Computed example of a mutant assay.
Amino acid sequence: MISAWQFCPYCGARLDAREEGGRSRLACHSGCGFVHWDNPAPVLAALVEYQGRIVLARNRSWAEGAFGLITGFLERGEDPMSGAAREVKEELGLEAAEVTLIGVYPFARKHEVIIAYHLVGHGQIRLNEELAEFRLIAPEKLKAWDFGTGPAVRDWLARRGT
């Protein structure tokens, strides 16, 4: 179990490892009922098709030459499909159309679950402050990678027969 939690956020008592729901979880020592389920965070990924090409972007915190799909966290109460369109609008300034689910992928390394969509972007690309640069790649030249959003790229390419 990977968690930095030591104390109950409700009563302040120590958290102890115990079996809950068939797994070892941190639970309140005082018995107030708090259990830290430590569920993975839902992350949205958008494979954006723009003018017949795929948008890959580099986050400002990433190394030079490292590009990926548009991603962001799902907001409370938000529909995942709408959230993917929101992320594309926020990060690229594009309106989303034809949004379709590619798939759902575990990303254990970051304790996340990725919900990936393909969408067609319309408008003028305007990067927000999170992104340093972007590239437009012809779909037939796009290559999947082995981690994170790469499996979604692989599945999208396979469906296209690329």
Rank of each mutant, 00 (worst) to 15 (best):
L119I: 03
D146M: 13
E95R: 13
A108F: 14
G72E: 01
A46L: 01
F147Q: 14
E20S: 08
D146G: 15
E129F: 01
E130W: 05
L44E: 00
P80K: 01
L47K: 02
G93W: 04
A45V: 03
V104R: 05
F134R: 11
R160M: 12
C32I: 05
R53W: 00
P40V: 07
Y105T: 00
A138E: 15
G148L: 12
L142N: 10
A13G: 15
K141N: 09
A13P: 07
A85N: 01
I137V: 15
I54T: 09
R18E: 15
F34A: 06
H118I: 07
E20C: 10
F73S: 09
L101K: 05
E78T: 05
L56V: 02
G21L: 12
A116E: 01
R135K: 07
D79S: 07
C32D: 05
L142W: 07
Y50F: 11
A13L: 06
F107C: 15
L142E: 01
G12I: 01
R160H: 13
L127Q: 14
V153R: 09
M81A: 15
W37V: 15
D38Q: 13
W62C: 13
G121L: 12
S82E: 13
M81Q: 12
A46H: 04
T100C: 08
I114P: 01
T100A: 05
E49C: 14
A63G: 08
R159N: 03
I70V: 06
A27Y: 05
P42S: 10
T71E: 03
C11R: 00
V153P: 02
F134I: 10
E129M: 10
R154N: 09
P151H: 03
E98G: 03
V104G: 02
A84D: 08
E90T: 08
L127W: 10
E87K: 04
R14S: 15
L47V: 11
K143Q: 14
R135L: 14
G148C: 08
T71N: 08
V55R: 01
F107D: 08
D155Y: 00
R126E: 07
L44V: 03
F7T: 07
V153Q: 06
Y50T: 07
E20G: 04
